[in-house]
Write a protein that binds this DNA or RNA. Sequence first.
DNA 1: ATTAAAAGCTGAAATATTTCATGTTATCAA
DNA 2: TTGATAACATGAAATATTTCAGCTTTTAAT
Lengths: 232, 232
Amino acid sequence: MLSRTEHKFGCEDCEFKKMSCLYVEPDSFEEFRQQSIKLSFSKGETIFKQGGKSGGLLFLHEGIVKFCYQYDSGSNYIMTIVRGPKLLGGANLFFKSVNIFSITAMEDSRVCMLDSAAFMKLAIGNPAYLLALVENTMDMFQDAIFNFISLAHNHVNGRIATILLYLHKNVYNGQGYSFTVSRKEIAEFAACSHENVINTLSRFRKEGIIEFHGKEIEIINIELLEEISRKG
Amino acid sequence: MLSRTEHKFGCEDCEFKKMSCLYVEPDSFEEFRQQSIKLSFSKGETIFKQGGKSGGLLFLHEGIVKFCYQYDSGSNYIMTIVRGPKLLGGANLFFKSVNIFSITAMEDSRVCMLDSAAFMKLAIGNPAYLLALVENTMDMFQDAIFNFISLAHNHVNGRIATILLYLHKNVYNGQGYSFTVSRKEIAEFAACSHENVINTLSRFRKEGIIEFHGKEIEIINIELLEEISRKG
DNA sequence: ATTAAAAGCTGAAATATTTCATGTTATCAA
DNA sequence: TTGATAACATGAAATATTTCAGCTTTTAAT
């Protein structure tokens, strides 16, 4: 990973810097930043590998990544999908020496790998900063937990509805009601077979709830989708 | 909740105090402790109510509690079950003004309700303490996530095996291989019907994996149970 | 441009799961 | 003790889901 070409992108208008400097002195942040590594990943590339040594904290400047658990059988479960700018902390990173999940780029992404030791130093000196970052991480977990709750209670109908709404609201926001995800990825997110996703999406289309052309899915009737998400 | 009778139990040998005093001065802790409320809950009583105003942090001195999500339909999903001594932080409490889950006593329990503002003051003054508590919380989440991962991938066989192992290792530890949980609660934890739990437990018994007399379940062949949990 | 690989699609058979109906056994309070 | 309630148990029918086989379309690489 460290042998990849470093791409230069500006640090001046960095969201992480802006957020951090609400809590820490610019000089302290600059020192921290010096320890971090800027990288670009193409769609499909693995950023962190499940079972590998934890690379510490990671700030996703731009792009979309999935948290993916790989079973021994080879099948995958997507725990959550997030878009930058976002700090990717949590059980996968915070305090854990081994990655529980792989983190894989779903779109071309720019990230900064942050040095754990330097982060700890900064956090210890600025507890309010630490609190803000933990809160940020908890938000990400909460999104994932609501998906689990849908998974535990709903049939595939409801699970897919929940996922489409999540993707629309939290990931592909700011681009109307359409986005592009593969059936296979929806299946790995909803924990069902890809055939079931195909059938369900076709049914949703027949009922006028969504429309799609290839991988591009458009939500037509969001109220109905929300009702299916709630009632199963 | 606050109108309940306060039961006195000693603060001298409190696990939370011991853990806290690794990081903070005894005087600071004592000041914090003064703001907290000691309570006892009987089996079945609700400690925190889903949708209610968050009561801040809670230290479970002794007892067993479940984190329970109640759907509109009235059915429940148990996210996790934990035994004291344990700090119950996490998305349900940390930084959230409304409880996502109910927390209900599964056995008679003794808790301290900690004051959020006093906790923040202590945490800001002792970032290493905050880090330790966050790490503790992340551990609890990790246990819950491994259950989700089993839920997403396994059939009921494997989910129930995973749950029995979790209960044996993390909740009813230190009491051999047997414990007492209702079929209904296992069903709510495994996200399936209680009939399915009954059938599965009977099958496990026929195959010599477990034994049970009423609600008391004993693990006979833990290696086989672990294999089912992984593969099944 | 051609080919290989991956993704999308469909329907039928096999399997898993829930729901329902029914009855038995614990449990708990009056 | 008795009665009410909840939990436990079982089997059959209905439903949901996966698996499989076969096919088309899209995507990516040579």
